[in-house]
């Protein structure tokens, strides 16, 4: 009897351990069982902050939720923040994971399901974040704007300040919806005038110097190259002595930490069009 109980307990442990080991595999619970019969829906009650990776405290979640509501009230666009410890069987295709999460959980208030999802994946070897926009939000999620958005949060994300990164994200997203862009052209007129003036003076001085030197053609001859008897040049001794060697090492600039955004436009598994991008960290 004892042996049977021990055996059963072992099976339970093994199964639990196996489930834990293989927890990252397979589809997430919100993925439809039958994709072909899935119909889009709106779920106003779906949580707008899904912290499966448990990186946010309750207070932080509350603050973020208020920001999300402000954005939604101002624009009508939905916003959901999603953290996950695994990419399930999406592997490196974090963009698809984000899109499916948005669609299959019923996010988006209007007919076009306009809104965006900000997802952070903490799977070992596959850490990164994604911003994917759906419906009317797609026009705001251009490559330049996604790059600018990612630049703002890049430092906090790499330093593990995820809450701060999310706060910045929501602020910048609100700015993006207000201004239509996060990429602003700088007024370089004064700089351009200075550069043009300096170049103009340098080139004018060179041209005038060339014209001037053409007026002064008289000079003492310094060599007798023209008067060498052809074939008379003779090198008797030609010895090259090696003396010593000197090595200097210079560290190359490391650009590997400055990851550019991967911009992608595509569809979710349910066939809805998205636009966005993200980075690894």
């Amino acid at each position: 009897m004892k042996k049977i109980i021990a055996c059963l307990l072992s099976c339970v442990f093994i199964t639990a351990f196996g489930c834990t080991c293989f927890a990252g595999q397979g589809k997430p619970s919100w993925f439809p069982e039958d994709l072909e019969t899935f119909e889009d829906f709106h779920d106003e009650n779906a949580p707008r902050i899904v912290d499966e990776a448990d990186v946010l405290s309750d207070d932080e979640e509350q603050t973020l939720l208020e920001k999300i509501n402000d954005i939604t009230d101002a624009t009508g666009f939905d916003l959901v923040i999603y953290t996950t410890p695994t990419s399930y069987d999406y592997g490196s295709d974090r963009a698809l994971l984000a899109r499916d999460f948005y669609q299959f959980n019923g996010y988006g208030y209007d007919e076009e399901y306009s809104g965006s999802v900000f997802m952070i994946c903490f799977e070992e070897g596959n850490r990164g974040w994604e911003s994917q926009g759906c419906g009317l939000v797609r026009q705001y999620f251009t490559e330049e704007n996604i790059n600018a958005l990612d630049d703002y949060i890049d430092s906090d994300m790499r330093n593990g300040n995820y809450y701060e990164a999310m706060l910045t994200y929501t602020d910048k997203l609100s700015e993006l919806y207000s201004n239509g862009t996060l990429v602003y052209e700088e007024d370089n007129t004064v700089f351009n005038i200075i550069v043009a003036a300096v170049l103009a003076l340098i080139i004018a001085a060179i041209v005038t110097k060339v014209l001037y030197s053409g007026m002064k053609k008289v000079k003492i001859a310094t060599n007798a190259d023209l008067y060498i008897v052809p074939g008379s040049e003779h090198i008797r001794v030609s010895r090259d002595h090696f003396l010593y060697i000197h090595t200097r090492r210079v560290l190359r600039e490391n650009n590997s930490n400055k990851g550019g955004s991967t911009f992608s436009g595509g569809s979710s598994s349910g066939g809805r069009s998205f636009s966005g991008g993200g980075r690894s960290f």
């Binding site: 090259d240 002595h241 090492r249």
Partner: peptide, 27 residues
Amino acid sequence: TRQGRYDCYTTSYYLLEREGDVMFKNI
């Protein structure tokens, strides 16, 4: 050359000795 993250500048120093002669005409 490149060694990992470093660029290596290897400078070899030499002493060159030259002797010769040449004829000039009508300078």
